[in-house]
């Protein structure tokens, strides 16, 4: 499964990165790399069954502190 995920991501990168280099959009490229890395790491963690904390539970914690909930 992890091989599949990684290979899918590699295919995406192989398709998009040369395109971006060719068009010389360094800004786009860095943004792409940033989000791409996050996506890759998250996917790998998910596939490896690592417990990823949900962003929503963090938000709930804050709201709990503020007593803002029904």
């Amino acid at each position: 499964m992890i091989i599949l995920v990684v290979s899918i991501y590699i295919i995406i990168a192989l398709y998009q990165v040369p395109n971006l280099i060719k068009r010389e959009c360094m800004r786009d490229l860095s943004a792409f790399c940033f989000f791409y890395t996050i996506a890759l790491v998250l996917s790998i963690l998910y596939v490896l069954d690592v417990k990823i904390p949900s962003p929503i539970s963090g938000m709930e914690l804050i709201l709990d502190k503020l007593q803002l909930h029904y």
Partner: peptide, 23 residues
């Protein structure tokens, strides 16, 4: 950015994973 289209797949990937782990 010049175009949002480069981000389609990474953002989609993150959104999917968040959808899995949200609750």
């Amino acid at each position: 950015l010049k175009s949002y289209k480069t981000l389609i797949i990474p953002i989609g990937g993150i959104a999917i994973i968040i959808a899995f782990i949200a609750y």
